[in-house]
C-alpha cells in the first residue's frame, strides 16, 4: 500500500502532542503532512515557529493554491478552514465554523479523503471536543487508514474517545508510538 499524504487533527494539548509526533519524522519524509490545530482566531504564527524549531521536516503555514509536497508539514492558518483539492493543491475557506471550530478537523479530513482516497492516513490526537470524528469516518469509507492517539496518553481524551466511538479505527496507540508507525507505513513504498 502506497500512502501519499497524512492528515492530523488536534485541539487541547495539541501543541505538545504535535511536537512529539512531527519532531520524530525524518527531514526527507516521503509524504506531505497536513495539520489542523484548533487555535484562537487572533493567534499569530507562533505554532509554526514553535514546530519549525523542533522539527527536521519543513513546517509552514498552508498557502492557498500551493501544492502539498513531501518533506513539508502544512499548518492551517488561524481562522481559516484548510481543504485539499483533487489536484492535491491546498485551499482555504472562511466559511462558518464547523463543530465550533475554524479551522475544523472535519473540513480538512473530508476534503483530503476525496482527494487522496485510499492513500490517506488520518490521525486524531488530543482534544476536548469531538471535531474530526466525521472526517475520520470518511477517510475510512474511502479506504484510508485511521490512527487515534490512545485516550489514556492524551492530555484531553474527548476527541480521541469520540473518534474511536465513531470509527472502526486501525490503530489506537500512545503518542510516542505514532511517529515510528508513520515512518514504517511510509517506508513500505515500492515493496
Amino acid at each position: 500500500m502506497k500512502y501519499e499524504a497524512i492528515v492530523i487533527g488536534a485541539s487541547t494539548g495539541g501543541m505538545n502532542a504535535l511536537k512529539v509526533v512531527l519532531s520524530a519524522l525524518p527531514k526527507k519524509f516521503s509524504v506531505p503532512v497536513l495539520v489542523v490545530q484548533h487555535l484562537s482566531p487572533r493567534s499569530d504564527s507562533y505554532l509554526v515557529e514553535y514546530l519549525s524549531k523542533a522539527c527536521k521536516v519543513m513546517v509552514k503555514e498552508a498557502d492557498e493554491k500551493e501544492k502539498a509536497l513531501p518533506g513539508y508539514v502544512y499548518i492551517a492558518p488561524p481562522n481559516y478552514h484548510l481543504l485539499v483539492e483533487k489536484d492535491r493543491c491546498l485551499a482555504l475557506s472562511t466559511e462558518e465554523r464547523v463543530n465550533y471550530a475554524r479551522p475544523s478537523v472535519d473540513v480538512l479530513f473530508e476534503s483530503a479523503a476525496d482527494a487522496y482516497g485510499r492513500s490517506l492516513i488520518g490521525i486524531i490526537l488530543t482534544g476536548a471536543n469531538y471535531d474530526g470524528s466525521k472526517g475520520l469516518r470518511r477517510i475510512k469509507q474511502c479506504g484510508g487508514l485511521a490512527i487515534v492517539q490512545d485516550p489514556c496518553s492524551a492530555e484531553a481524551d474527548a476527541m480521541p474517545k469520540a473518534a474511536i466511538q465513531a470509527v472502526n479505527v486501525d490503530y489506537v496507540i500512545t503518542l510516542d508510538k505514532i511517529a515510528p508507525l508513520l515512518n514504517k507505513l511510509t517506508e513500505e513504498i515500492g515493496e
Partner: peptide, 9 residues
C-alpha cells in the same frame, strides 16, 4: 470555483 469548496456547500 474551487471544487472542494463547492462540494462542501
Amino acid at each position: 470555483y474551487s471544487r472542494a469548496h463547492m462540494k462542501r456547500r
